[in-house]
Design a protein around this nucleic acid. Structure first.
Lengths: 254, 254
DNA sequence: CGCCCATTTGACGCATCTCAAAACGAGTGG
DNA sequence: CCACTCGTTTTGAGATGCGTCAAATGGGCG
């Protein structure tokens, strides 16, 4: 599915749920807003939904909004001239989408599961960033976290073996899942992969065949069990982290 | 030089040059400060010098300052348990070093050429970020740029061949050099590499031998000429960019 | 001049890619 | 309820780009 022809259709909910009951309010870009600006955000926000597989924006297209991921998973991808694809971002609930100040999208954004966005029109959002220091300060923090994650990813792509890449990837997903659930990642864990094998290979800089072979190898070695296409059970979180070479340890230091 | 034993010694210049005549003032984190805060920065800043090869901080160490690169080049690196190294950041003049809010360094910082830093003690700098919106807003912008660069780097590590990696790397250096000189990168260009072959291999996720072989190959094919260990002449900037698969095009879109 | 270290060159092995086919699972219609 | 289809995933066999190990070259400096 190198280039998916599906054009993004969406349903706009002009009057979405309230920010107060919003499931991502604690962690999203709006997390630190005081009541006054939260009310203001409330008036300019709107929701969009995408089905799994739909493209949200193409690299090079204009994007007139920025957004928080409310539900589901989206990917950012870059493509070389001859069609080779690399994923460069994996957005999960509470993550921020878009770049304030840039009208043109640098990456292709795709929904890999059913996706719900809380969108803000660019102009009003940029104005609010100027007015309420808390928004841009939270965005700075989130961007610095993204940068650290990207650097961890560089280490993975540059120096890890296929087996280590898979193990690291599963650890990362498990950790993010646990954080979202407000738990500590440990012991036996259930995981529902939000990505196809192809998307995994785009994340890891591998081919789909190598991903499949290494998943089988990890299963053979008792580190994971597979249940259906997307289900994975990690026999032991710490063992898997070990198998990945070194993961996130440095990022965890505060 | 997996682990260089050299402990960072430095000379502190308590009263450095003035911000007004500072060569990086236009582009650094302080670029947008108004006069009042610039004067304030002036009182808390201090300079440090490192010789080529010295380590500025080790990953895991406390770092009580943040800094702007004034002169020279520094690298950020991460290491796996068994010693494999990956570079995850390449800092050039006007770039920012350190993470406000984090006391412990996540990456090992090394001077790869003689290096001059304009340092700010963490606490006063963080206070000033809170007081002067312009500092944190400039830092946000710089961090977003870094994130885009890191994502370009992900594409390079994940999907490019050794030859494309080298070509891309040289293009990136040439482009950054040109930007710093306020010129457009094009045609025949002279380049003085700020990195050893080993550092290049750490940047590109290759071995030193492969880097060397591909440099030779690019020379054989007339794309570059070598003059001494660090000197490179790009026969034609655009040809080299082409050889790199696709470089920075997307990042250049505004 | 001679030593030291960075770089280049060479020969060989292996991890991952490529191409191809089989297996599997989900959805559809008879 | 089963047969069929289509897309995804797994498995297999062979090719290759890059890594590994080892030696040669070369430039800089005492």
């Amino acid at each position: 599915m190198q280039v998916k022809a599906a054009i993004a259709e969406f349903t706009a909910a002009p009057c979405g749920p309230s920010c107060v009951t919003c499931p991502i309010h604690e962690r999203a870009v709006c997390a630190r807003c005081d009541t006054r600006y939260l009310e203001c955000l409330e008036t300019v926000k709107y929701y969009r939904r995408y089905e799994a597989g739909q493209v949200v924006v193409w690299a090079g297209d204009e994007m007139d909004f920025v957004a928080s991921i409310v539900r589901g998973v989206a990917t950012l991808t870059r493509m070389l001239d001859d069609g080779r694809i690399q994923m460069v971002g994996l957005l999960m609930p509470s993550d921020f989408l878009g770049r304030p100040g840039h009208r043109v999208a640098t990456y292709t954004v795709t929904a890999t599961s059913d996706l719900e966005l809380c969108c803000f029109r660019r102009q009003p959002f940029e104005k609010m960033m100027r007015d309420d220091h808390r928004i841009s300060s939270r965005l700075l923090e989130m961007t610095l976290d993204e940068l650290d994650a990207a650097r961890e990813w560089l280490l993975l792509l540059g120096r890890k073996s296929a087996r280590e890449k898979i193990a690291s990837f599963l650890s990362i997903l498990a950790r993010r899942q646990a954080v979202l659930d407000g738990e500590d990642p440990q012991g036996r864990m259930h995981l529902e992969l939000p990505l196809s094998r192809e998307a995994m290979s785009d994340y890891l800089g591998l081919t789909i065949e190598t991903v499949s072979r290494q998943m089988t190898a990890l299963k053979r070695d008792g580190l994971i069990e597979l249940s259906g296409k997307r289900g994975v059970i990690l026999s032991d979180f710490d063992s898997l982290v070990l198998e990945g070479g070194t993961d996130g340890d440095a990022v965890m230091l505060s």
